[in-house]
Design a protein around this nucleic acid. Structure first.
Lengths: 215, 215, 215, 215
DNA sequence: TATGAATGAGCTTTCATTCAT
DNA sequence: GATGAATGAAAGCTCATTCAT
C-alpha cells in the first residue's frame, strides 16, 4: 500500500466509509483525473471500482455529488494542512534563512504532493466550472493558507530576510512559482525531461533574488 | 462589434470562412470556455450560433475537430505572434531597462490577452486531456516563444541587466509569473477586487529582484 | 404462441436470455426481414419490442452486434441441424430410394423452414455485405452440411442410385434446386399461386432425372 | 473502355443522358452493388461521380428514383434481350441438341453477365424490398423471358429432346440452375476457387440428365 | 444547368439515474 | 446494502433533400 493510499484510508476512517465507498472514491479520483469530470462516466467508475452502477448512486445522490464529496474533504483535511504543516516549528526556530525554509517546505511535501496530484488536478480543472468548489476553495484553502503563510512571511520580514512588499503579494508570488513549476512539471509537460532538484533550487533562488543583476 | 470580434474576423478572413462558420466558431469559443469542452453540447453551440446542428458537422467532421480547429490556428496565428510581437524593435532600442521592456510587453498586450482569455482558457483546460493539442502547443507556441524570448534575454544578459541563469529558466519564470497573475486575476478569482496596475508593477519588480532583502 | 415462437423460445432458454432480450430479438428479426438490416432503425425495433431504445444497447453493443447475435446462433443451432437432422436414420434404412429420401427431407422440414424464413431471408440478404456473416456461414453451415450430405450421397452412389459425379457437385445441385424453389416460392414471388406439393414432386423428379428425354 | 461501359454508354445514348448523368449512374451502380441501396449515401455517390450532391437531385427527384432509374431500363433493355438474344436463330437451326443450345447460351452470355453482375446484384437485393421493382421485374423480365424460353423449350420437346413437363417448369429449373451457379460463383462465394468451364459443363449435364442413375 | 452550403429529421449510441429484486 | 436491468433524455453524427447563387 502506497503512502497515498494510506493517507486516503486515514481520511476514509475518519469519515467511516464502507469498503465499497472507498473503492468508489479511489476509482473516481483516477477517472476524473485522467479524463476530466465531464468526460468520465459513472459506469466506467463503477467498473473500475468493482461495484454495481447502482451502488454509486446509493452513496452519492448524483455524479456531481461524488465529485464534491471527493474534492471538498480533501480541500479541508488534506491540502490546507499539507501546505501549512509544521509551520509552527519553523516559526520557532531561530537563524533559519528563508531559502532553507522554502527548501524544507518544498522538498518535504513534494513527494506527497506528487502522489496527490490526481486530486489536485481535479481541483484545478473543475474550479473554473463549479462555483460550489470555487467558493469552498476560497474559504477553506486560500484564506487558511494565506493566513498561515502570511504569518511566516511577516516573521521573516521582521528578521530582515524579506522585503517590505505586502505579505499576501509575497505569498502569491511564492505559491505561483512553486505551483508554476509543479504544473509545468507534472500536468502540462510530464513527458519532457526534468532535473527536479535543480529546478527546485532555481525556483528558490528566483523567488529570493529575482533575475535582475545587482550592480 | 467588440475589438475581440474584430480580431477574430481578421483571422476568419485569412481562412476564408463562411458567415455561418464564423458564427459557429464564436459560439463554440463561448460555450467551450464557459463549460469546458466535454460539458458543451453541439446542439447548444448550434443554437447559440443560430445555425442547424448539421451545419456544424458539415464544416467540422467531429466535435473534437471543432475544438482543434479553434485552438490550433489561434495558437499559430495569434498567441505566438502576440507574445513575440515587436520584439525586434525592443532589441534595437538602446539603454532600455528590462523593467521597461516587461512593462511595455505586459501592458501592450494585456487588453488583447484579456479579450482572448476565452480561447486561452480553453487551451489550458484541454491541453491536459488532448494529446493532439499538447503536441501542437509544444510545437507551435512553446518552441516559437521560447526561441524569441531567449534572444531578448541573452541580449539583456550581455548588457549586464540579467543574471547568468540559463535563458530558458529565466523565460520560464517570467512567463510563469505573468501567466500566474493573469490566471489568478481572470480565471481563478475574477470576483475579487484587483488593482491591476499595482499588481503588474509588483510582478515586474518581483521578476527582477525577487523577494529577498539585499543586505 | 406460434410454433415458430416456440422454437425461438427453446433457443432463448438455452442462451438464458431475459424477457426483454427475447422481445428485442423477435422484433429485430421481424424488422430486419421486412426492410433489410440497413433500412431498419433501432428505434423502430425498440418500439416493436416494447422496450426503451437504451435497452437494446445494454444487451447489444451496436446495431450490427444485434444482427450477428441473431443470425450466428441460428446458423449454428438451427439451420445446420435442421438440414442434416435424422440423416443417420436415413443412412441405416435399407432399400430406400433417393426420391423417398428427398421427399422425406423436403417435406419434413418445409413447414419449419417456412416459419424460419424471416431469419433465412436476413441471412441471405446480409451475407453479401457482412464479411463476418459470410465467414460464419461458410464455417458453420456450408462445411457442416456438405460433409453430412456428401456421406448420404456417397452411400446412395454405392447402392447404384446416383451417378458418379463428385458428391459436392451433386450436393450443390440438390441444394440449389431445393432453395431455388423455396426462394422463388417464398421470397421472390410469394404472391403468385403455387401448387406446393406438385412443385416439390417436380423438383425431386428434376433432380433425379433432369429434363433430357431418354431414348 | 470495357465492354460493359460500352454497353452502358449505348444505353445512355438512347436515353440521351448528359455526361454528368452517366457518371452518376455508373457511380450509383458501383455503390449500390457494393453496399446495398439503403447503406449507400447520395453524398458518396456524388463524390464517386465527381458531381455536386445537388446535381443528383436535379436529375432524380429522390434517391429511390435513382435506384429505379438504374434498374428499370436495364431490366427492359438489357437483361431480357440478353437472355433471349439470338433465340430465333436457334429456333431455325436443325438437328441442334439441347446441350449445345445451353452451352452456347451460357457461354455466349457469361462474360457479359459477369460484367453486369453489379446491376444484377442490385436487382435481386432490392426486389424483396421494393414492390415497384418486383412488379416491373415480373412484367418486363419474367414474362418476357419465359415466353421466349418456353417457345424454345416447346420446339425441343417437339423434336423429342425434352421430357413432357410443363415448359414453364423446365424453364424455371434451367434458370434456377444457371443462376444458382452464377450466384454461388460470383455473389456468395467469389473467394473460393472455381473451375468455371467444368462447372458449366456439369450444370448442363445436370439439367439434362439429373443425378439419378439409369438402369 | 450545376453547385454546395444549409437544413432538420432521424439515426445510432451514451449515460446518469431509478427501482424491483 | 448491493445489484444490474431498464430507462429515456440527450448526446454526437448522418443524410436525403432544398435552394440561393
Amino acid at each position: 500500500m502506497t503512502e497515498e493510499e494510506l493517507l486516503l484510508r486515514q481520511l476514509f476512517d475518519e469519515e467511516k466509509l464502507t469498503d465499497k465507498q472507498k473503492k468508489i472514491i479511489i476509482a473516481a479520483i483516477e477517472t476524473f483525473s485522467e479524463k476530466g469530470y465531464a468526460a468520465s462516466s459513472t459506469s466506467e467508475i463503477a467498473k473500475k471500482a468493482g461495484v454495481a452502477e447502482g451502488t454509486i448512486f446509493r452513496h452519492y445522490k448524483t455524479k456531481k455529488d461524488l465529485l464534491v464529496s471527493i474534492v471538498a474533504p480533501l480541500m479541508t483535511k488534506f491540502i490546507a494542512p499539507l501546505v501549512v504543516k509544521d509551520f509552527n516549528k519553523v516559526l520557532d526556530r531561530e537563524f533559519e534563512t528563508v531559502e532553507e525554509f522554502l527548501r524544507a517546505t518544498i522538498e518535504n511535501r513534494r513527494d506527497l504532493l506528487v502522489r496527490m496530484l490526481p486530486v489536485v488536478k481535479i481541483m484545478f480543472q473543475e474550479i473554473p466550472f463549479q462555483p460550489e468548489l470555487r467558493e469552498q476553495f476560497l474559504e477553506l484553502v486560500v484564506k487558511n493558507i494565506f493566513n498561515r503563510v502570511e504569518k511566516v512571511i511577516i516573521s521573516y520580514q521582521e528578521k530582515g530576510f524579506l522585503i517590505e512588499m505586502p505579505p499576501e503579494s509575497i505569498a502569491r508570488f511564492a505559491i505561483t512559482n512553486i505551483l508554476g513549476f509543479l504544473f509545468s512539471r507534472y500536468l502540462l509537460f510530464p513527458h519532457l525531461k526534468w532535473d527536479d532538484e535543480l529546478e527546485i533550487e532555481r525556483t528558490i533562488q528566483f523567488i529570493m533574488h529575482g533575475v535582475g543583476k545587482r550592480n
